[in-house]
Computed example of a mutant assay.
Amino acid sequence: MLTKEKTGLIVVDVQGKLATIVDDSERYITNLVKLVKAAKLLELPILWLEQNPEKLGKTVPELTDALASISPITKYTFSGCGEPAFVEAVKKAKVNTWLVSGIETHICVYQTSLELLNMGYMVELVSDCVSSRTVSNKELALAKLARKGAEVTSLEMCLFELIRDCRSDQFKEALSLIK
């Protein structure tokens, strides 16, 4: 079960034209913005990655606005774990579980998640907050990561798991995000 005290969020490479051509991009980006807002509401550590932004472009504006006050970590390897600043930030966050979101599920999300698992972290892929250009590549990556020990969750599922109690101070505001 996810807990606020032990969980963080990673946002992987939601940039440029690619972010607009992944499967169901509008719904995906909307869900991801909700996830980031919920993570901020719950005061989870948030790490934000950008793959080679000089070539691929910056993170989409809707998400950049939601991530305000957080600086992106630039990377050139497909896995975020190939970037020392990211690995340092992961360790500094002092959580044991990472919600992972972003694009593309079968490349950068997959490789980052696999290396986090290999480092001993628990990984939960937020299924409606990851995407690829094709559904088949997304499904393949989710299935392969699940076989390797990652869990698959959804925006609503992880949010209610983290909140736990309808009497929580954050419940009403979180509920307004997903309605």
Rank of each mutant, 00 (worst) to 15 (best):
E5Q: 12
K6M: 09
T7Y: 01
V11Y: 00
V11C: 02
D13Q: 11
D13R: 11
V14W: 09
Q15I: 03
G16W: 14
A19E: 11
A19L: 07
I21L: 12
I21S: 06
V22Y: 05
V22E: 05
V22W: 03
D23M: 11
D24P: 00
S25R: 06
E26D: 13
R27W: 06
R27Y: 11
Y28F: 14
Y28V: 10
T30F: 13
N31V: 08
N31P: 09
L32A: 02
L32S: 04
L32H: 08
L35E: 02
V36R: 03
K37P: 02
K37N: 13
A38Q: 07
A38L: 14
L41A: 10
L41Y: 06
L42F: 09
E43H: 11
L44S: 02
I46W: 00
L47G: 00
W48Q: 01
Q51A: 05
Q51D: 08
Q51H: 09
P53N: 15
E54K: 15
E54W: 06
E54T: 12
K55F: 07
G57A: 10
G57N: 08
K58H: 14
T64W: 11
D65S: 04
A66C: 06
L67R: 00
A68G: 04
A68Y: 10
S71A: 12
I73W: 05
T74R: 14
F78G: 05
G80E: 06
C81H: 02
C81E: 00
E83T: 13
A85S: 10
F86M: 02
V87Y: 05
A89I: 02
V90L: 10
K91F: 10
A93Q: 10
K94G: 03
K94D: 14
T97P: 00
W98Y: 07
L99V: 00
L99D: 03
V100Y: 01
T105Q: 06
H106A: 05
I107Y: 04
I107R: 08
V109R: 03
Q111R: 05
T112H: 02
T112W: 05
S113F: 00
L114A: 08
E115G: 00
N118C: 01
G120Y: 15
G120S: 09
V123Q: 13
L125W: 01
V126P: 00
V126Q: 01
V126T: 01
S127L: 03
D128I: 12
D128C: 04
C129Q: 01
V130G: 06
S131N: 07
S131K: 04
S132W: 05
S132V: 08
S132F: 03
N137K: 13
K138A: 11
K138I: 14
E139L: 15
E139D: 15
E139K: 15
L140Y: 14
A141G: 09
L142Q: 11
K144P: 11
L145Y: 10
A146H: 13
A146P: 12
R147F: 14
K148F: 08
K148V: 09
G149M: 12
V152P: 03
V152L: 12
V152M: 10
T153L: 00
L155G: 04
L155N: 03
L155R: 02
M157C: 02
C158H: 00
C158V: 05
I163G: 00
R167G: 09
D169I: 13
E173A: 07
A174R: 05
A174M: 04
A174S: 08
S176W: 14
S176D: 15
K179N: 08
